[in-house]
């Protein structure tokens, strides 16, 4: 069916408006990029908006030589990669049994897990548990307490439940065991949900802040979020630097705006780069045609 003239105009205007709305989400990022590459004087005068003014890469030079950002980046990658693998494995192993109707007591187990969404132990009790488990200053303190996000697990369970039981029957008849069914049938059919949850977990681990702040004592093991937050905060605490003896040292501790922007970029870019690669897994209709009548 061909669109009428009115409809055509509607779509054109609609697309423009939505494109502009989409762009507004991009502006802060573009602005941050512009600031990271701009001259300090131009930034302070507020002349930087969408493109760098007074091209300057000094922020990155001092970021990489003057702060432990490379180490922090490595730490962030370690936390994220291992964390995602552990969390995904645990989530799949939790979601699969409770998605099976034959599993005895699945209602009880499901409710018990949902319970943890509503009630949590609180910061200090959790800290005490982590401490008495000897996890202090170890990344396991970040991975273990948050190993399975109940919400993510429920999403996965629902997805598993929607796999037609005919597939199950068919594979059983062909002599498939429980484990083989999970690995060869369920998981390949669940790529969309696996990609989505990997991304969820990935973003959570990448952005993790408070647990690192609290459980990790060795500053050499901090991740990017804690490091950059520290750098930004130091600038807002000018007042206390007042009394440091060496006058020349005072200004030296002020982090320029461009350095902040550069730090933020280092945090944001990897996640941004990962998105397009996961995109291809968000394919709809994987299930289509898997059941032939």
């Amino acid at each position: 069916m061909r669109a009428s003239l009115g409809e055509k105009w509607f779509y054109i205007i609609n697309n423009i408006v939505l494109a502009l709305l989409g762009l507004t989400c991009l502006f802060p990022l573009i602005n941050t990029i512009a600031i990271a590459f701009s001259d300090t004087a131009a930034i302070e005068a507020g002349r930087v908006s969408f493109y760098p003014i007074g091209w300057n890469t000094e922020a990155f030079t001092s970021l990489f030589t003057g702060t432990p950002i490379i180490g922090a980046f490595r730490n962030s990658v370690v936390i994220t990669v291992i964390g995602v693998v552990l969390s995904m494995a645990a989530t799949i192993m939790t979601a699969y049994p409770i998605s099976r109707r034959i599993f005895y007591g699945r209602r009880f187990f499901t409710l018990a897990m949902v319970f943890t969404i509503m009630f949590s132990g609180g910061l200090i009790p959790t800290y005490l548990v982590v401490k008495s488990l000897g996890l202090m200053n170890s990344y396991f303190a970040l991975w273990l307490p948050a190993l399975v996000s109940t919400y993510n697990m429920l999403v996965m369970r629902t997805f598993f439940e929607n796999i037609p039981s005919e597939i199950d029957d068919a594979s059983r008849i062909d002599g498939c065991s429980e484990l083989a069914y999970l690995l060869r049938i369920v998981l390949p059919l669940s790529l969309p949900v696996i990609a989505t949850l990997t991304l969820f977990y990935g973003v959570t681990y990448w952005n993790t802040f408070l647990p690192v702040l609290i459980y990790i004592q060795d500053t050499g093991r901090f991740n990017l979020t804690v490091l950059v937050q520290n750098m930004i905060q130091s600038q807002n605490l000018l007042q206390e630097l007042v009394n440091s003896g060496v006058t020349s040292g005072v200004q030296a501790n002020v982090v320029p705006e461009s350095l902040k922007a550069a730090g933020v970029l280092v945090i944001v870019l990897p996640m941004l780069a990962v998105y397009p690669f996961l995109q291809k897994f968000f394919v709809k209709g994987v299930m289509l045609g898997s059941v032939k009548g």
């Binding site: 030589t65 003057g66 702060t67 490379i70 520290n230 130091s234």
Partner: peptide, 14 residues
């Protein structure tokens, strides 16, 4: 205080 400004060649604040 750790201000996140220790150069990597110098070690860590602690």
């Amino acid at each position: 205080y750790d201000r996140g400004n220790v150069s990597p060649d110098e070690g860590t604040i602690e």
